[in-house]
Design a protein around this nucleic acid. Structure first.
Lengths: 207, 207
DNA sequence: CATATACGGAACTGACCAGTTCCGGATACG
DNA sequence: CGTATCCGGAACTGGTCAGTTCCGTATATG
């Protein structure tokens, strides 16, 4: 049976035998998820983008929902290393130090993936939990650290509600990306920090 | 928009053709949209819930996307009447006066509908515009009025960024409903007003 | 080189759904 | 009461997609 010679363009190394390709497939799934949403995503799209066969995906994941669940979990592996977080001595310094292109790109990607699955969250508690752990929690955790440091320094009142405050900036970013369709830009984050987060935290306006 | 028939000016014999059932059908569409999302929603679901035939829906709307577009536009008709907005004399008073069960229910419904279509927003500019006008804009408009009044009173600095500030509370609500899956409760809004919105607006803490 | 393994791809099945067509019945109006 | 008109419902069509099966081939190992 003649097989059409497929366009070579094969930068891909030889085939591997274990599950080495999982990351590529999960990344492809996340891309498709962000572009088309859960319902619009097809297994074929993911397979094609990962240069894999549909059968290969089903050898590893038993269903579309399992694949998505795993892909969202994979998002979490990109978490910031808490050991390398900025520690500038002021709350504002710490927050501003987080405004870096790679961080913004990563946040935006997470939010776009989130946009693709929000409609599923109400129907799938498992997916909701995975999304919470991959998107909401890591960001909140970093902010909690900064806020607690600020309390320890006496920079903000000790009775500040760290739990809720840690979600303010993420909420503003999510609203901007998901509801307004605008990108997250440094100027926006600077405004959010100086005019919302810091006043809300109770930082005494300096100068 | 784009009704299949427009016969208002020409009453004919037979059944009335004034599209009396449109509201019920659009409401049904919004319910299904909120429950299952755009892709999960089927025309049959909407027809069944509205106790109508599928053919009836296609007599009025040429496609599923037209129906959804119209339904989202219909959401806007629930806008608050600006003439009856509270005017308590303080920014906090105005904001707190908006915390009422009917308002909260309406906001939550809008946000759940929004959850069902966020993944479409990037792909359909028309739907994005309709959603913005029905969900984002009305709420922001009310907050802008309150903020401008506060500026006129000298309650907050005249250089406050009304445009951005009017989105802070909506962003917190949206994050809570869409990302955390929690309901909008009065206590949460009170916290948001007292600990985020007012400090951000620059209200002098009053004893 | 021989053999075992897993991969990509294509073909297939069954379910589901948008959109269409048709019909029997209900309703207003003359 | 007759008739024009619209309605709800059911049947149908065509396309799409999840999930399965099969096969030829590339790779690893000995």
């Amino acid at each position: 049976m003649m097989r059409v010679e497929q366009a070579e363009a094969k930068p891909r190394p030889g085939r591997k035998r274990d599950h080495t390709r999982d990351p590529e497939i999960l990344d492809a799934a996340l891309d498709v998820l962000a572009e088309t949403g859960y319902e619009g995503m097809t297994i074929d799209m993911v397979a094609t983008r990962a240069r894999a066969g549909k059968a290969t995906l089903y050898r590893r994941w038993s269903s579309k929902s399992e694949l998505v669940l795993d892909a969202v979990g994979w998002l979490k592996s990109r978490d910031l290393d808490h050991a390398t977080l900025p520690d500038t001595g002021t709350l504002r310094g710490d927050l501003v130090a987080m405004i870096k292109a790679p961080n913004l790109r990563e946040s935006e990607r997470k939010l776009k993936v989130m946009a693709g699955i929000v409609s599923m969250i109400a129907r799938s508690p498992e997916l909701a939990a995975a999304a919470h752990e991959a998107v909401v929690e890591p960001r909140a955790a970093v902010n909690r650290i900064f806020l607690r440091r600020a309390i320890d320094r006496g920079e903000i009142p000790p009775d500040a509600d760290v739990e809720k405050l840690s979600l303010v900036a993420p909420a503003l970013m999510a609203y901007r990306v998901l509801m307004l369709g605008k990108p997250v830009e440094p100027e926006f984050l600077l405004w959010a920090i100086d005019h919302v987060v810091l006043p809300a935290a109770g930082v005494r306006p300096t100068t």
